[in-house]
Structures are given as C-alpha cells and as structure tokens.
Write a protein that binds this DNA or RNA. Sequence first.
DNA 1: GATGCTGGTGTAAACCTTTTCATAAATCAT
DNA 2: ATGATTTATGAAAAGGTTTACACCAGCATC
Lengths: 337, 337
Amino acid sequence: MAKPATIEDVASLAGVSIATVSRALNEPGKVADTTRRKVIAAVAQTGYTTNAMARNLRTRKSNMILILAPDVGDPNFSNILVGLETAASKRGYGILIGNTQNDPSRETDYLRFISSNQADGLILLTGHLPFGLAAQKPAVRLPPIVAVNEPLPDADIPFVGVDNVEGVRTAAEHLISQGHTRIAFLGRGASAIARMREAGYRKAMEGAGLRIDPSFVLECEGTTEGGRGAVERMFVRDRLPSAFLCVNDAAALGVIISLSARGYQLPRDFSVMGFDDISYASFVTPPLTTMKQPRHDIGAASMDLLLTMLEGIEPRSRQVLLRADLILRNSVAMHRR
Amino acid sequence: MAKPATIEDVASLAGVSIATVSRALNEPGKVADTTRRKVIAAVAQTGYTTNAMARNLRTRKSNMILILAPDVGDPNFSNILVGLETAASKRGYGILIGNTQNDPSRETDYLRFISSNQADGLILLTGHLPFGLAAQKPAVRLPPIVAVNEPLPDADIPFVGVDNVEGVRTAAEHLISQGHTRIAFLGRGASAIARMREAGYRKAMEGAGLRIDPSFVLECEGTTEGGRGAVERMFVRDRLPSAFLCVNDAAALGVIISLSARGYQLPRDFSVMGFDDISYASFVTPPLTTMKQPRHDIGAASMDLLLTMLEGIEPRSRQVLLRADLILRNSVAMHRR
DNA sequence: GATGCTGGTGTAAACCTTTTCATAAATCAT
DNA sequence: ATGATTTATGAAAAGGTTTACACCAGCATC
C-alpha cells in the first residue's frame, strides 16, 4: 500500500488492458457490460483513483479556473466567490484563487498558472487585464476570460455583473418617490463602476425633470472614510440636499456616522441610500435602505458563462447584467417640506 | 506559434540536451556558465514556460494547497483566507479553495484533489476531518494537514488559531476591572470554540473570586439571532447581569440590538463585549468593545506551518496560539453601583 | 604514467494517463 | 456461405518533464 494504485494495477487485476480500464471509467458505453463490471470491481479493490496530473498532461486540460481578485477579504468579493465556487464545483471544476492587492507584480506572477497549463480559464474581479497580459501580442496566449463585477475598459471581454445604471436609477427614483428633489450623489469617481452609478443617478433625475445642483455631485471614494469626508465637505456649503445617494454602502455608512455625529436625526433630517447591501447594512442605525446586489448569482452566472466558453460555445451575449433589488429599511423617509 | 514551446525546442535552439535545459532552469549551479547563458537566451526567444502538468506528474508534487472551509463568504474566514493566500504565494504555492457548507458529500468530493495528487497539503477551517477521511484506514492516505481556527476533536492534527481561553479571559478581566461582578456569558455551546471561550470566562471569574450565577451562562448560537434570543430569555428572569460577555461579535451585535430595542441606553445601562473584531464591530452604536483576532496572521502562520511540514520538517510544536488583542471602544462602561 | 576525482553533459527511463490505430470477433445482409 | 459492417479489445504512441546513470575530458595525486 506504499504507492497508490495505478491504472496498470487495475488492468492486471481485472485481466484487461489499461486502455479498457480507461474506457470503462471515462466512456462506459464503449465497453462490454461484463468487462466493465470486472473493472469497477478491480477499482474498488485497489482503491484506484486516477492521477489527475497524468490525465491533465495528456488531455491538456486542468479543470481548474483561476480567479484574480484585488481583495478576497472584501465581503463583496467573498460572496461572489462562493457563487463562483458553487457553480464550478457543480461542473467538476476546481478554483484557484489569486489575491492580487492590485499589485502588478502579483498579477503577472499569477499568469504562470495559465501559461503553465494549470488553469483553463480566468475570472477577473480586478477591473483590468492582469499586468503582463495587456499590450503584448503573443507573450501569453489569452485563455477564455470573463470579467466580473467591473467591466474591462479596453479589451473586448465578456462581462457579468449587476446593472449599475439601472440599479442606481431605481434607487434615485425611490428617493424621488418619497418627495426628495435635492438629492446629492456621493461617489463621483474615475472607475467604471462609479461612472455607471453616477449615470444612473443622472438618468433618474433627468427622467423626473429635476435639475441637478452641480455642487451636489461629489467626488468620494467608496469607503466609509470617503463618505465621511464628503459630508464634511458638503457642510461648508450653504445649500444642503435632503437626501444622500451614495455610490455604495460603505460610503453610506460614513455618511450616516458623520450626520449622526453632527447631531442630526436620521431619517427625519436627512435620507440616506447606499448600494450593494453589504452584511452590516441592516445593523447600522438607522438600518440602511439600499440596493441589493445578487452576489451569489453574479458569481454563478459568470462561472457558467466561462465554462460554456471553455466548451467551445460562443456565448449568446457578451454581457450579462443582473438586476439589483431595492431593499427598504429605515434610512429613507418622506421628505418634509 | 500555434503550440507553446517545449523544452525540446529550447534544447535544440540552444544546441544542448533537454536534460541540460532542465538543469539550467532548476539547478543553475550544476551547469556551466556559458551554456546557462545560451539556455536562458533560447528560453527568452522561444517564450518557453515549463509545463506544470508534466513537471507535477514527474515530481509527484503539485505545489497546491487545498483549503476547506464551511463558508468562504464569512468575513472571519475570508480574512484568514488572505493570510493563507499571501503566505502560500510567497513560497510559490497556489491555493485551491473548497466551500463545503458543512455538506459531507461536498467534503468527500473535494478529497479527489488530494487523492489525485492535485494538492500536496490540506488546510481545514471546518473543525473536523472531511467526511470520508475520518475513520477509514487506507482509503485516502492522509496528506499533511493543519487545522485552523477550530481544532480537530479526535485526530492529532497540528492547530493554529487564536488563544480562545486567554482571549476571553482577558475580555472578562476587562469587564471586572470596570467594576462589573454580575457578568453573563452568552454562548455556551458544544463546539470546541464555544467550550474554550466559556472556559476563559470561568477562569477569569474564578481568578477574581467572583461567583458565577448559573443562570447567567446561556446557550446561544454565535449569530446575531442567537444573541437576540439569549437576551429575550434572560429578561424573563428577576436577576439581571450588569455586563454581557458574548461568545463572538455577531452575538454581541444581537445583544446590542435587543437591548436598544428594549429602550436601554448603552453602555450606561449595560456593558457588552464581543470577540473577533469583525469589520462592522466599529460601526454599531455603540461601537463594540471586543477582542481582535489576528486573522491575517492566523492564516499566514498556518500556511507556514503546513509548508514546513511539506518540506519534511516536523513542526516544533503541534499548536500555535496567537494572542487576541483587547480593542477598547464604547460598549463597556464603568459599573454604576 | 596509471589512478582517481570532479564538473559538465547526454541518453534514456520513468511518471500515468488518454487515444489512435489495428485486430479479432461477432453481427448482419445478401 | 460469403462479404460487409459493427463492436470490443489491445498495443503502442504521445504528452513534457525530471533524474539516475553513464560518459568524457581535464586535472590532481601518487
């Protein structure tokens, strides 16, 4: 029992050739009933399990997917991850994860997995092609790729994610439906996501015939600190909004903290909305009204897309947009005129 | 450029044998300077990159570590994950993750990675040996394993995690130092972690010569719901504690929500402590005083331990306990007598 | 001048599969 | 009964490395 059993052990025990063993296991239809039974008996007896390395070498497939994410610890990513994992595992694939921390050298480093055939496909949560895969012509041949969460700017890569502009538009329309007209958008930024979310905001305002006060659109990183800072900058002004629509929940959280610290009562004095529905959105005081990203579904859908691409099927559409759902909690109130 | 270059292409271009190429790449010392230069030039020209499958087949090593966790989306796990990933990647290993959801069949399924040589070692965040690895004698040969976060009950497997009893003891001592004597422990449970944390609580109480009111030790799942429920059960009693020490932050959160809903002012009326320092501990009102788990370090330490075991070195100690740090926020106040 | 090392290289085996191609047996049509 | 087709199997190649072993030249040792 020192060495694990090989296909030859099974073959000789079953009294057949190794080719037959292989077929009995992989294409049971192509083998006679009686021999198949002999083979599986021999497999059971030897405890044989096929050596994946040898198989992968021969078939030039690894049944592994490499996932590159800037920070796997980020709750937003980690939940997408479980969707990815579930879908992959359901189809017999394993996932290999790379935490890049947006470090170009780490991104490059991870490409070894694909250039050395250890991964058949690539899922990008980073918002850009890995450094080193970008401009070059043949250096590393592109495997099938799908971008998740954040679309890739230049490259023409299939994308799966939430419909950011529709989502934020829905959010803004909810605020408008509550009588708000002076709605600030906190989160203007350079990233694709920030731009799309701002676009959704503008679309809703325009659709309702509301003028956007330019001073109500603030640059703001999508972090708690960012939201805090934006509020501080806003309060040096004379005109104030009645509602804050934030680029994401983290920023909204900062806004709530900052407004509470200034002694305001929420949602009586101001309404606040976020986007994402991160786990603690429901634990803040007041509980945050927000748009829920279907993170698990996003993960599953992107993995499914990638795996069908791997099967050689061109995806019907190069973009899958999932709807964000409005989650009503208690950070938004009717506007008191 | 259709096929990727193989070692033979490099060899013939450099005018040497494939053995020399292999040596030039893997044991540069064993090859003459001039030939080594020829080889690396040829590598550069062909864009050669060694086929990992072939190498793994030959060397019987995959340079992969399988990580089994019940829920990768759990913020506690996902942060350990980045520590694991960082340490692995630093030493040239890749990580393969399996989300088991505590489903025995999924646990068994993931063993294929180790039985098929696709992973050299195993990290368990599950608190138990994977189903199917447990009782059997030879079925799957045990790879090097380290348990993280939660020790394995029966098996003698190296463990890395936070020192739960010392940690909770520190927490309890903090409450005692604030003048509290009637301290409830919410979180009695069957899991190893729950037991250790309860032990820390008892140790501190005993050390301070305080009697533990048995009705102050409550069963309670480590979830927000669990914490809520425990408070409700407690409030049918006539005697109430002045401080709640919770098995983890999630439960503490439930306690805070429940107490606030009953109209109490925190920390004036009751003090509350948690354990873990999950990300939103600082965002609750009042911000939660708790013990911080060094999650990143835990991940890194366990991966380091596993990798040294893989190198054939027996670990100096089969248990690494990291200290939890007291994080002072605002959910604990001096006891008003 | 024979002997023994040493450092550098090449040959070929081994790792374990999958799969092509050939062969033999069995089935079918005529 | 003959030839054509199908079905089931085996022999062997291919996949791309690493590495044990053999070899050879150069050099030091006695």
